[in-house]
Amino acid sequence: MLQRPRNRRRIRWWPVIIAALIVAVVLLNLQPIDAPRDLTARLTVPVQRLLRQLGNQVRGATDVVGDATSLVERNAELEKQLAQLTVENLRLKETEAENVRLRNLLQFRDTNPNFTYKGGQIVGRVVASEPTNLVQSILIDIGAKNGIEPGMPVVTELGLVGRVTAVYSNAARVLLITDSASSVNTMLQNSRLRGMVRGRTGQRPIMDYLPQDQPILVGDIVLTSGEGGNFPVGIPVGQIIEVEQNDVEMFQRAVVRTTVNFDTLETVLVVTNFVAPAETLDVPTPLPTPAP
């Protein structure tokens, strides 16, 4: 008597799993299904933008609370006042911080007049990341209707962020230079040695293929070399913080601290008129301070 319902249940749910597995495996072999993703992005990007802003505010508030905790040890009353003011001024601080970022972006634009930028109309906001920590890419709230196309370089006033890999009508996906699938042709500012910066998810990127017989100095600035035609020449990428040299290997490598802090990235610029130059030129670029 008891066997029947058990069998019936098995018959009801195992086909669902098998069917889902088959569908998933089939879909894995099809390249990106752009239409449903475009529709999903169109419907959800406004919600994502709100949630991201909320997340940024929570992060900001947590930082401020952390500061306030240290103040408590010195003055309890002062901390109470600070907490109250923090809550009251949270929105204002957020606006002020955004103003500073936008001003910096405009300053970067003024010092690099060769490029044109698209976004907000000009600036794109980061609205989402990948669901997993293993893939380093972001979604920005500007897309095809703003003139964004796959392959366009993405920067901030501090340096290189990544490259547009997928474009929807109102959003675009950007592969960060820290992703393990990312590689950027670069050069050292002082020695002009060429190499390739490769992303390592969960670790700092590494500059590879540096010749063994050349000295690499900690503190050297890494710039895009423009080779390969994916990125404009002279965009800051980071700074060498460690050199890995092994005599049995053909090349030496160096760990790079990126100038952009990807943990707190909120706004970006997309270079929309970049065309790969016929010949690579060395263009001096104002150097920002690397991220801590």
Binding site: A20, A24, L28, L30, P32, I33, P131, T132, V135, R173
Partner: peptide, 15 residues
């Protein structure tokens, strides 16, 4: 749908 990678990766993993 919300990510940019191969479709089905997250469904398979969660199943």
């Amino acid at each position: 749908l919300l990510s940019g990678g191969w479709f089905g990766v997250y469904t398979l993993g969660l199943m």
